[in-house]
């Protein structure tokens, strides 16, 4: 078995696509995890706030979705036997949403967890907490777009 049959473009592309999904999903998992813990604490005191706590919890869930979108698009582009240069291109295009999704998901989760405090103490103003969360979301969207436009520019 020679080197290129192991280290080839297809494998690199798979690695990139996998990272896009795995890192972004990890970010969402961390984020929804933080928010979910805070939400569970609140619901144990006041079960009627479950619905709103859940909405705040799922806000950091979108990074995983974006990562999955890029995984899907990248995976559709991969063909066995593509050259290493093309593999690197796909790999590079997948990085923004992977890294951006990981970090923004975790960061957004922290904001969401704090927003659950708003829900507990000032229930009428909980929607403001939602707005604070969406500010972080924008950077996940930009990461998604960066990955998307780079992927679009690669011709296989």
């Amino acid at each position: 078995m020679d080197f290129t049959s192991i280290f080839n473009g297809y494998a690199l592309g798979l690695l990139g696509a996998g990272l896009a999904a795995a890192l972004a999903c990890s970010g969402s998992a961390l984020g929804t995890g933080y928010a979910g813990q805070a939400g569970a604490g609140l619901v144990s005191e006041d079960p009627s706030k479950f619905g709103k706590a859940m909405i705040l919890q799922v806000i950091p869930g979108t990074q995983g979705l974006y990562g999955f979108v890029i995984w899907f698009l990248a995976f559709n582009k991969l063909v066995p036997g593509m050259d290493i240069a093309q593999g690197w291109q796909i790999f590079g295009a997948c990085l923004p949403i992977g890294i951006g999704g990981l970090i923004s998901g975790a960061a957004q989760g922290k904001v969401a967890a704090s927003s659950i405090n708003i829900l507990a103490k000032k229930p009428d103003d909980w929607s403001k907490g939602m707005i604070l969360c969406i500010t972080v979301e924008f950077y996940a969207i930009l990461s998604l777009l960066a990955s998307f436009m780079m992927l679009n520019g690669i011709s296989i």
């Binding site: 979705l65 974006y66 979108v69 924008f138 969207i141 930009l142 998604l144 777009l145 998307f148």
Partner: peptide, 9 residues
């Protein structure tokens, strides 16, 4: 950015 992201997803 939002226009694009919404339609991509």
């Amino acid at each position: 950015a939002l226009m694009l992201a919404g339609s991509v997803v």
